[in-house]
Design a protein around this nucleic acid. Sequence first.
DNA 1: GCTCCTTTGTTATTATTTAACATTAATTTA
DNA 2: TAAATTAATGTTAAATAATAACAAAGGAGC
Lengths: 252, 252
Amino acid sequence: MKRERLEEVAEILDKRGKMTLEQLEEAFPDVSQMTLRRDLSQLEEDGRVIRIRGGAMSVKEVQKVSGEAYTKKTTVNMDAKIVIAQKAATLIDEGTSIFIDGGTTAMYLSKEMPDIKCNIFTNGIAVAMELAQKKNVDITVVGGQLMKDNLSTSSPAAKEYFNNTNFEIAIVSALAFTPEHGFSCNSQTESDLLKQVFRKARHVYMMLDSSKIGKINPYTFAQLEDIDVLITDDVFPREYKALFEQNDIVVM
Amino acid sequence: MKRERLEEVAEILDKRGKMTLEQLEEAFPDVSQMTLRRDLSQLEEDGRVIRIRGGAMSVKEVQKVSGEAYTKKTTVNMDAKIVIAQKAATLIDEGTSIFIDGGTTAMYLSKEMPDIKCNIFTNGIAVAMELAQKKNVDITVVGGQLMKDNLSTSSPAAKEYFNNTNFEIAIVSALAFTPEHGFSCNSQTESDLLKQVFRKARHVYMMLDSSKIGKINPYTFAQLEDIDVLITDDVFPREYKALFEQNDIVVM
DNA sequence: GCTCCTTTGTTATTATTTAACATTAATTTA
DNA sequence: TAAATTAATGTTAAATAATAACAAAGGAGC
């Protein structure tokens, strides 16, 4: 109930750019002003909205106003990534030990995830910061050199460390996929780390939005047979879907 | 006169990200609040600033906020910490290898720091995210369990890792200090980590705002003789200053 | 010097936000 | 399932901030 409303408020603000509290009250006649205020506070904490006197403004709008092209990866295929992340979030059970990577999809996943008792290992510091808001989640961050483009860390030492760690699930995404080259990324040490994670994980879930298909990145970290479940969006090509299913991969 | 001030207001806002009117008044003691308000109105029309209740925010900051998970923890003694951080930032030279801790003062330090070639090791993920914006800085994040209150990580494995790492400078802060109990924090593993860092650092700089004095936290990680330079604010008690200087510590 | 115009300061008014508490709904636990 | 706990919402009063309106001060041009 609250969750949905929050989402709606964010959406209408993204659409209209800027609204006064009065306008928001008109749009949501069933809740009090105070509740809307509280919603805005929360959206502000999530970085989706800026509160201004008398109302609020969507961050998207601010970016437009400032005239700067916002070239971050966070916007590429963002809607698909959110849907994928929401789906993945439903697969997380209480008490499990999970590895999550540091990609943008993982970032959305950590936002959507329920606040349940579980152990999460991640190499994404943005993911870690997001998860830090959930009080039941225990977080362990992989150490190592930070890559500035995707805010993820990796190191040979971390790979060693994971020798004696086990995961129920590893939820990762790739920067690129082709049937011949498998799933690939752009960092050697990250690739090594992920290979090690897969060795220790009981199930591997791959989040792959369709924009990644047909692309190749330098370091392959997984082939079709390494993964168990594929979570993707609805424009995922049919022939690829068949290919995955032939390899006993559940496609969602 | 007006033009210059407008420019200055815009600059300081770009730098500090967000300021209350009160802070602006401190920064511009010669003009009235109303004038500053009018300045903000104008900057808002120019699209350089977003006015929020109680102050304003630079558009640049808004863009950052939208990318990051924004954990707002408006700090106690924030002004003192900023001054301390600014001072500490001047002590960083090109090409050095530096350890920075994960405290809030360190967070401000990473904002104020120049974008020069250097290697920074940190156990603070908020610090790491901030530094990620500087393209010349090479960042290594300490791995381990994340403490949600201060967004810092630590682990015995990280301590091992630092056995073969050297630092020119370690810049840290403490949660508490008394002459008898030394510098203390609230985490055993973090304390262990810092002790190890001090062993490998040529110089240790301690950032300590005066609100920390006379307090005690459970884990002592350093005594007076372990540190070389103390960076503090101007309400630091005189008798403590003498005490530090007796121990060959430079007080700034 | 004066006059017009811009900038700044002061105060009173208005509007918005926060805080505090009461109430209801939802979740957990026994 | 009911009781207990926690989270969400609503209501009101109090605090806070923003605006408006006007007065005063500073400058530029004559």
